[in-house]
Design a protein around this nucleic acid. Structure first.
Lengths: 100, 100
DNA sequence: ACAATTAGTCAAAAAAACATGACTACCCAA
DNA sequence: TTGGGTAGTCATGTTTTTTTGACTAATTGT
């Protein structure tokens, strides 16, 4: 890897963060409520474990999602929007306006 | 190429559009005024003709930039923000807020 | 005890994005 | 007429991202 460019554009980091193939859709689902690994695999046709796992990890590291182990019933893990993730919602809404 | 996913997320297209390595920076410069091919090559260290050419073409096809041939003085081509491009500016501003 | 569901990891291959260097073609000035 | 600046294209090679398929391991239902 050659890394030598200073980020000229402040929005660039955030943009890169959401630029994976599956991240926008994962984020979109997370807006509607907590999401789970296998659920996403089912919700996103043509996706795969590896990609979803990597996307979830990166969204978590970027502090857009928070990972929680739910210690009840069928013991599982869920990902929900962080505070920062929630702050992104109005931006998505605006993007949708410009899209349509 | 296997293409079979319907875009579940309305913001996805726009996001993908701005997700290239050079597009955010090109867009950023275009906000400050019309940009030109060789100018961008100089402004963006470590970039290259090919990548800039492709990025400009895609931004134009996406109707974010408008390409104009300026028939005066040293006959050149410039790219300026389209109406849709201008509509993106407030979104970039918001992205910068969430970033910082 | 057995099978299914949970949530992953890993190595490898395939696909997409990006970079390199050579080349084109037009305009303008010395 | 040589040289520089404009704006690219093209074939090729490298790098990054995404996919595939095999595997792990704990928990839960029958």
């Amino acid at each position: 890897m050659e890394e030598n460019n200073i980020p000229e554009c402040p929005a660039e980091g955030l943009l890169k963060l959401l630029s994976g193939k599956w991240k926008p859709q994962i984020f979109r689902h997370a807006v509607d409520g907590p999401v789970r690994f296998n659920q996403l695999l089912r919700l996103l046709p043509n996706s795969n474990k590896q990609s979803i796992a990597v996307a979830l990890k990166e969204l978590e590291e970027a502090d857009l999602l928070v990972k929680t182990t739910v210690r009840l019933k069928p013991l599982h893990i869920e990902y929900r929007l962080s505070e920062r993730g929630n702050a992104m919602i109005p931006i998505f809404r605006q993007l949708e306006l410009v899209s349509g």
